[in-house]
Computed example of a mutant assay.
Amino acid sequence: MSFVVLVLVGVLVGITTVLFGFGGGFVTVPIVTVADAALGGDAVRVATATSALVMLVNAAVATASARRGTLGPLRGRTGLFLLLGLGGAVGVAAARFAPDALLRWGFVAYLAVTVADLLLRPGFLRPAAIRAQRGARGGVPTALGLPIGAAAAFLGVGGSVMTVPMMRRAGSSMAAAATLANPLTLAITLPAAAVTLLVPATGLHGADATVGLVGAVDVRAAAALLLGAMPAIVLLRRRPPRLPETVHAWGYLALLVAAGVAVAAG
């Protein structure tokens, strides 16, 4: 896959970061899996590692450029952030020893279960039905920080697939939930990205498997994706689009389906 194409995909990654709080994981993993298909089964491992770095930078830019006051519900949630970070470290360490098939099909299964949950259980597409059922501040209980961080880092998805529906069911709009998901993703991906950059990619096979890699990260793909994503994030933060809640929620759902299909087909 050419550098220019990856830059253009990066623009899409930036858009999803702002609109859906993804940080890029659900776009980055399928794209890098395809771009590094020559690595065979190891392509998913490299994609997961590369996704962690891309999400880290994108989440940091999105958080820094968020409007003052929008992150208020997360103030004082130090325990949640610490557990998310610990879970991120545990998840990325476990991914290094997991079978390649588990990473690929675990990603697909994770999305399939999430899509079914969003369609069948009220509160995401039909939030008005449960507005009175408020959860913890920000909608994400502190106790769930560890499992969310571990699952997100293991699969390279950033955690927003769990946190955005939680915050939406707690009464947040899609725009607010996506904005709050960015610093949560940052907490998960900081230790995950450090591990994937520093630990040699000893699990990869083939004489040329490590060419262009730092640790398990495809730095060329990461650089191209970030080159496209960061300007898009800053622009959309300054001029946020106004989407109807229904369109915004269904767009989130459609992107999950597309990402799962891409990884399964790859």
Score class of each variant (00 low, 15 high):
V54Y: 03
L111V: 06
A62T: 04
V261F: 10
Y110S: 12
L111F: 10
T50V: 06
A129L: 14
L146E: 00
P141I: 10
R45T: 02
F107A: 02
V261E: 10
A258W: 13
A60C: 06
L236E: 11
L186E: 00
A128T: 11
R237S: 09
S51A: 12
D208G: 12
A201M: 01
A143S: 13
F26V: 15
I233L: 04
L6H: 09
T114W: 12
G228H: 02
T246I: 15
I188K: 04
P231L: 06
D42Q: 12
M167A: 14
L213S: 01
W105G: 15
M1I: 05
V13Q: 06
F22R: 05
L102E: 00
M167H: 04
N182Y: 11
A64K: 15
G139I: 04
A132N: 11
L197F: 13
L146I: 08
A265T: 04
V46W: 03
A264P: 03
G88I: 00
L120E: 07
A224V: 08
D100C: 02
V247M: 13
G139C: 05
A150G: 10
L226W: 01
L39F: 10
V61G: 00
V195L: 12
R238D: 07
V214T: 13
A59Y: 08
P73M: 14
G87M: 00
I148L: 01
L56E: 02
R126C: 09
L144S: 14
W105L: 15
A178C: 13
L56M: 09
A193L: 08
V5Q: 11
L255V: 11
